[in-house]
Design a protein around this nucleic acid. Structure first.
Length: 786
RNA sequence: GGACGCGUAGCUCAGUUGGUAGAGCACCGCCUUCACACGGCGGGGGUCACAGGUUCGAGUCCUGUCGCGUCCACCA
């Protein structure tokens, strides 16, 4: 048995300082040559670690928040790889949705018009200022998608170079764009599966509608914003009675859409009115007065009008009381032409009602509000003005589309939904099967799921996105038969029903009586995003691969999209395969600027990340990111980069010392050395436990603290005399055994600490590893050393 | 209005099952000794948001209050 060989370095041959930029390039190339980050598809599920990477929205803007959260994932991934796991770490680009749609429209000065035919050889450049003054060019959906590819390819490159520079150990062979053929196919397969299982349905029902984007929106895309409104106190009369009462409303313009009046059943002021009919002022429309527990006697006058539709509660009352549908608002948010005195809009005085409505028609809600207030100032049937006093300001919370500028309206439109309300119990159960990091984030999922009010509205009336793969037959009179949708086979996907012919028909039959029409709507972008685990695993396209990659191990994401991305992903996995999509969710916090505000582009406080790498070194930036606990918001603090930098420098210098000693390395026999090794062992156990719990911040802190306190400040100084083995001025002369024990302990300590630091500081640790340990261990990269 | 998180040194943050308050930065002083001045050694600095409670003992557990943040909430 030959003595093990040990490699040394000549400290004088090494650079005085660690050149991080040069090392980053060198080791990136090394890892690429080794294929270090590649997923090995031949290995089984149990030895594989699968990441459901968040596909960033490709819009060309990158900020330090990306650096922060993606580093968290990479630290976890690198640790798993060192544990011997076969890592599947893909990258997706989310180029499906409104941000891309807007950017492409702007850049090329085009508009998507699904009815436009496809132009095979369309070549467009960035539009000039002069071109942008003209009308935008109309292009078909397929051309629009191609333009999207053209533009996002550039953006993807920018993202990739940032992520590469950051040292993300992504397997770049596993990339996808959410709008590419395969993802569109998988989204449409998902729909076919939901439809076949009865989870997807078509409904003509009131849904939340954005009048600017002119599309339906889902509950998850809605946010409340404070808004100042005005209470308008309006007097109603009662049919066949002398009674009157006053309602308070912030939306007087919906008076023509009033279909009922309600108050709390125990409200003594109004009990005598229940069962009677009220007559609306100006329009003289008789509407039922009914009691409802949902009416709050404390709000306004305690009695209110129900309109189609002022808000979500109106929808509830409309359903439960089977009230009439009088929809005055059109999809553009303006009051549509209609006639009072017919069955839908009955009136005691049709002529007066139509005259009043003529003042409102064509106006938007704000304009109509002003106009109707003026009308209500005129004397009514009682001889008094229905507007009994001047409007009073009131603060209210109003629902907006998260990307919209005007309040949402409730319109009755045709939409596709996925059934979720009746599956809350199962959804909650799946949420409990998943481990949330930090744990309290599970509450957000639970609360959202428990309070879900409406099914998932899947359809959007937009142009760019994944088309809903459905056609409808037209009957002999040319009327659309929505009850018998025509679906493609899975082999035909992806399809665009506006461009592709319905199965069993000729293209010439499009729009003709007895022919067909294509569904114009596209999917909610979350419909595709909620499939990222299945997109990674090639669900329904490659069964063997799917078995090896699904469910995934971790889903990294931020907390504000628990109700959307996490929720819908859980819902999809449950509906499709009755499975969880992943076992663990790791939630990164936000980066706050020094004033504790969230960094965002719109607030102009974004710090672009690239220069941080040049200035501090990638390892130092990663150190900053990894110092933050999962779920905790962190202030942007350049001071922490400096600490990270100091750590890499110290590692560099300590390694120079430890590995600079020539000669044999003996067994660890000295008492001091054995004590050190014992402490080292305890550190490894503790840090490993932390890493296993995805608590890398704790592992880093413990390792760092040990490194400074026990290694450099204490043990290294204690071991120095023996390592040098000098006998200056009467000092003790150490034996060869004492010397070689010290060297062995120092090398062991360094090698262990390097490996504990490696997930966070991949470059400096790889650099030092290469000096000696790579040759000794036969493992050319520390990132595979266990 | 509800839920969740946070509140510890001037700043950024740790504080495991309760057991005498910690680190780094910043500040002050000393030291160029052969891994490192991108260092080392030493020092000052805190009513642990506030008020009660449990306990021999509370930064830690319980209750309440205040402040900050996030998410949610039926627009009268």
């Amino acid at each position: 048995m030959s003595a093990p060989r040990y490699s040394n370095v000549d400290p004088n041959a090494l650079a005085k300082h660690f050149d991080s930029t040069e090392a980053e390039k060198r080791w990136d190339a090394h890892w690429q040559a080794l294929g270090l980050h590649r997923w090995d598809e031949s290995r089984g599920r149990d030895e594989t670690f699968v990441v459901d990477t968040p596909p960033p929205t490709v819009s060309g803007s990158l900020h330090v928040g990306h650096v922060f959260s993606y580093t968290h994932t990479d630290v976890i991934v690198r640790q798993q790889r060192m544990r011997g796991k076969n890592v599947f770490y893909p990258m997706g680009w989310d180029d499906n949705g409104l941000p891309t749609e807007r950017r492409v429209q702007n850049y090329f000065h085009v508009r998507c018009e699904p009815t436009e035919p496809y132009v095979a050889d369309l070549v467009l450049e960035e539009a000039s200022a002069a071109q942008k003054k003209e009308r935008p060019r109309l292009v078909g959906r397929k051309n629009f998608i191609e333009l999207c590819h053209q533009l996002t390819t550039v953006d993807e490159q920018a993202y990739r170079s940032l992520f590469t520079r950051l040292g993300l150990s992504v397997d770049w062979r596993q990339t996808y764009e959410t709008i590419n053929d395969r993802c569109r196919k998988q989204a449409q397969l998902s729909f076919l599966d939901l439809h076949a299982k009865g989870h997807a349905y078509l409904s003509f029902a009131p849904t939340m509608w954005d009048v600017d984007f002119q599309t339906a929106v889902a509950q998850a895309e809605v946010q409340d914003r404070p808004k100042q409104g005005h209470f308008h106190h309006i007097e109603f009369t009662v049919e066949g009675q002398p009674d009157t009462f006053v309602i308070a409303t912030t939306r007087p313009e919906l008076l023509p859409a009033c279909v009922g009046v309600t108050a709390h059943p125990s409200d003594a002021r109004y009990q005598h009115l229940f069962g009677k009919k009220a007559l609306t002022p100006l329009f003289g429309v008789p509407v039922p007065i009914f009691p409802s527990e949902l009416a709050d006697p404390e709000k306004g006058s305690g009695i209110l009008m129900v309109c189609t539709f002022g808000d979500q509660t109106d929808v509830l009352w409309w359903r439960s009381e089977k009230l009439a549908l009088r929809q005055i608002l059109g999809k553009t948010g303006r009051l549509e032409p209609l006639t009072f005195g017919n069955e839908a809009y009955p009136s005691a005085d049709a002529a007066a009602a139509n005259a009043a409505y003529a003042e409102l028609v064509g106006k938007n809600t704000e304009q109509a509000k002003k106009a109707i207030v003026e009308l209500l100032r005129n004397p009514g049937p009682t001889g008094r003005a229905p507007l009994v006093k001047e409007p009073e300001p009131v603060n209210q919370a109003v629902k907006y589309f998260e990307k919209g500028d005007r309040p949402l309206e409730f319109l009755s439109t045709r939409q596709w939904f996925a059934r979720l309300i009746d599956k809350k119990a199962e959804l909650l159960e799946k949420g409990r099967e998943i481990h949330w990091h930090p744990e309290f984030m599970a509450t957000r999922y639970r609360d959202w799921t428990e309070n879900l009010g409406i099914d998932w509205c899947l359809s959007r009336q937009r142009y760019f996105g994944v088309p809903i793969p459905v056609w409808f037959p037209l009957d002999a009179s040319g009327k659309t038969d929505f009850d018998h949708p025509i679906l493609p086979t899975s082999e035909q996907l992806p399809v665009d029903p506006m461009a592709d012919t319905a199965p069993g028909y000729q293209e010439s039959q499009r729009g003709q009586p007895g022919g067909f029409v294509g569904e114009t709507d596209i999917f909610d972008t979350w419909f595709t995003s909620s499939l990222t685990p299945q997109i990674g695993s090639h669900w329904l396209l490659d069964d063997e691969r799917h078995q090896k990659l699904f469910p995934a191990d971790i889903r990294p994401q931020s907390h504000e999209i628990i109700r959307t991305w996490a929720f819908y992903t859980i819902a999809k996995a449950m509906l499709h395969e009755d499975s969880v999509p992943w076992h663990d969710v790791v939630i990164s916090g936000w980066i706050l600027d020094p004033d504790r505000k969230k960094m965002s582009k719109s607030q102009g406080n974004v710090i672009t990340p690239m220069h941080l790498f040049d200035e501090h070194g990638v390892d130092a930036v990663r150190y900053w990111a990894a110092s933050a606990r999962l779920g905790a918001d962190t202030a942007f603090d350049p001071q922490v980069f400096k600490i990270g930098r100091r750590l890499t420098t110290k590692l560099f210098n300590a390694a120079k010392f430890v590995l600079g000693h020539q000669g044999e390395v003996g067994p660890i026999t000295h008492e001091l050395d054995r004590a050190f090794v014992q402490k080292l062992r305890e550190l490894v156990e503790k840090a490993s436990r932390s890493y296993d719990d995805y608590n890398f911040a704790q592992a880093l802190q413990d390792t760092e603290s040990f490194f400074w306190t026990h290694f450099t400040d204490t043990f290294l100084e204690l071991a120095k005399p023996r390592a040098w083995r000098t006998a200056d001025e009467g000092q003790k002369q150490y034996s060869e055994a004492e010397r070689s024990s010290a060297i062995a302990a120092l090398r062991l300590g360094l090698s262990v600490l390097l490996r504990l630091f490696a997930p966070v500081l991949p470059y400096i640790t790889e650099e030092i590893w290469s000096w000696a340990f790579a040759a000794e261990s036969g493992q050319p990269s520390i990132h595979r050393a266990s």
